[in-house]
């Protein structure tokens, strides 16, 4: 075997290793690059900055944002509202979900309420809630209404579908309830919960920002989007920049949840013998 063929083989092995370990990430990066490239081409061809600004212009606007004090203050304020809405919905949804999973009658009672929250148009609810609450609390409420049905349904389903054979075994061996919860219910529910939380938080951020736009919540990403949208002359790139901020918030939250999920599953994966 010659030296060059040895080198080629080694390169092929390294490439194969990278592809096996990080193929998914590479494909995702390639998709992003393709999307951005297509965006830039279309924007250059369209020549209508007020409709579709160039990606480079959006990057410049995004960079300018980091230099403004209101960016940090208002982004944090939006994130805080999203977290508040999510947290309240999580605790309420989990508590009612447990009740719904254990008591089928309670679940039947809550069914119309959950269906209403799930089906009611978000913008319509925002207009109503704006009258009941102040503009700064409306996004929190809308976030709650978006997340609550997801968490409630997930918790109730996970309890209702807990492995029957394990529960029977726990009954036979007179396992205390605390241990049943720790070793049967929680490991069964955790993967479903994380998946639901990941989806719900992304929806929550979307709904929170949308509510901020309609309610004109001062000191928020939504208001900045409204002001940018009103200015077609210079504002479209800034609007896209704020969109990017909202998307990044969502992505960061999802990454954080994935990290916590990995830690939990690594532990709970050994919980059931």
């Amino acid at each position: 075997m010659t030296a060059s063929s040895t080198k080629r083989n080694k390169a092929a092995r390294i490439a194969g290793y990278i592809w096996r370990r990080h193929g998914g990430t590479l494909l995702a990066l390639a998709a992003i690059a393709l999307f951005l490239g297509a965006w830039e081409l279309v924007a250059v061809g369209l020549k209508k900055e007020y409709m579709l600004p160039r990606f480079s212009a959006v990057c410049v606007a995004f960079g300018r944002l980091w230099g403004t004090p209101s960016f940090y203050r208002d982004t944090f304020a939006t994130l805080l509202r999203a977290i508040c809405g999510f947290a309240i919905a999580f605790f309420a949804g989990a508590a009612m979900g447990v009740a719904g999973g254990v008591f089928s009658k309670f679940r039947a009672f809550c069914k119309p309420l959950v269906a209403f929250f799930r089906a009611a148009p978000t913008m319509g609810l925002t207009l109503v809630i704006m009258v009941w609450l102040r503009a700064k609390y409306t996004p929190v409420c809308i976030g709650f209404l978006m997340v609550f049905p997801v968490i409630y349904t997930t918790v109730a389903d996970s309890i209702a579908t807990a492995p029957r054979d394990l529960l029977q075994m726990a009954k036979v061996y007179r396992m205390p309830l605390s241990k049943q919860i720790r070793y049967i219910y929680v490991p069964h529910a955790v993967p479903m919960m994380f998946s639901a939380c990941s989806t719900a938080f992304a929806l929550n951020i979307k709904a929170t920002v949308s509510a901020e736009i309609l309610a004109h919540t001062v000191g928020s990403i939504g208001v900045h989007m409204t002001n940018a949208a009103a200015d077609l002359l210079d504002g479209t790139a800034m609007l896209f920049a704020w969109l990017l901020v909202a998307v990044l918030l969502s992505v960061l939250a999802e990454c954080l949840l994935k990290l916590i999920e990995r830690l939990c599953l690594r532990r709970y994966g050994n919980a059931i013998v």
Binding site: L127, M130, V131, A135, L214, A215, H216, V218, T226
Partner: peptide, 9 residues
């Protein structure tokens, strides 16, 4: 400053 939709509310 409030949004136009907030005046009635």
């Amino acid at each position: 400053i409030i949004g136009a939709a907030n005046v009635a509310a």
